[in-house]
Design a protein around this nucleic acid. Sequence first.
DNA 1: TTGACAGACTAATGGTTATTAGCTATAATA
DNA 2: TATTATAGCTAATAACCATTAGTCTGTCAA
Lengths: 195, 195
Amino acid sequence: MTTRDKILDEALTLFAENGYDGTSVEEIAEKVGIKAPSLYNHFKGKEDILNALIDMAEARYEEFFGSDKHIGKLPESKEKFIQTAIQKISFTMHDPMIRKMRKFLVREQFRNERFAEITTKHQLSGIQGMYTKIIEGMMRKGLFKKDDSELLATEVTAPVALWIAKADRQPECEQESMESIEKHVRHFCDVYMTE
Amino acid sequence: MTTRDKILDEALTLFAENGYDGTSVEEIAEKVGIKAPSLYNHFKGKEDILNALIDMAEARYEEFFGSDKHIGKLPESKEKFIQTAIQKISFTMHDPMIRKMRKFLVREQFRNERFAEITTKHQLSGIQGMYTKIIEGMMRKGLFKKDDSELLATEVTAPVALWIAKADRQPECEQESMESIEKHVRHFCDVYMTE
DNA sequence: TTGACAGACTAATGGTTATTAGCTATAATA
DNA sequence: TATTATAGCTAATAACCATTAGTCTGTCAA
């Protein structure tokens, strides 16, 4: 890992934990193992690091949701749908990198329009779009009852988003959140899936 | 309005817009129309203002959700339920004071456990608890199909919360968000209400 | 009238912070 | 081998910021 990457990594960690304004250049440098001025060999300034991170967030979004690859093959039964959904959610909730990025965006979403947009993409458009396509596909196969797939996607993902957010700020509730999520997903399937 | 109240008001506005760390004592004082040191006649320090605001948030929560008064009388038909729900949501979304408080909490939710807890109360427990009771009551009257009322409460409120959050960071989407919300609430009623 | 207190002000202080200048050593390149 | 770029360092600076000390003024109670 290059120094530049290490800086970005530590900066993201600190920004997620203490916010941009709550983090000093010196802190970042210390975590990286260099002195603050050395940091300016890699970035023009503190704000430049912030911009590089938001570029990363945008790239990550494109990489993940840009193509349809992430959808994979459609689940072929109710149990399969529940299983893959829970697994994906659990991963999203616990993966340290994704969690950092999420907290970072939540904290800085009001900084400017670009941050606002990317936050919306990450926590709304991306995941909802993905589930819209999955549900649509499964509707065509007769696994879901005919309905507005976009609306259904919102209805599965929104409660999940809220519980993940809760787990982010109160990690002691992680397990409780996962249980609520599983209960919710099962209920959702009972209501909207055929058999 | 006393100077103390004016300080709290302006501080909340600035904290909501630029965050606690992004706001200087001088800025607050200037908005109030006094000099920074005069502020120390009313508060022990910057953090004291923050604590007073979180006390306010807690008091507001208790006042609003502490008793069952806020539930009012139960809607007696599907249309009535939709109408009062939309009206309450629209108010919550647009009221400047509530909006400021919401942005403030979202920004500072990771500051410490107390902030985390109160944020969860405001954006989860409170509203969901309220809808749990309303739906429960309406179930007893046969207006909702028999189901897990807590789960249903989550399912109405969660998408609303996400769209409000989106409108908070992208005010140009306010109307679009309200339309999505209305569509969602209607769909919810179609699925879970009797006739 | 007096005195005390509330609440404003100016001036000053000490700490933090982002950033720059300038030096040095190492490693790649010509 | 000579040179150049990279990437670290120390020292310094200028701005900002929270907070304190000390002063002044007006209001109200004794």
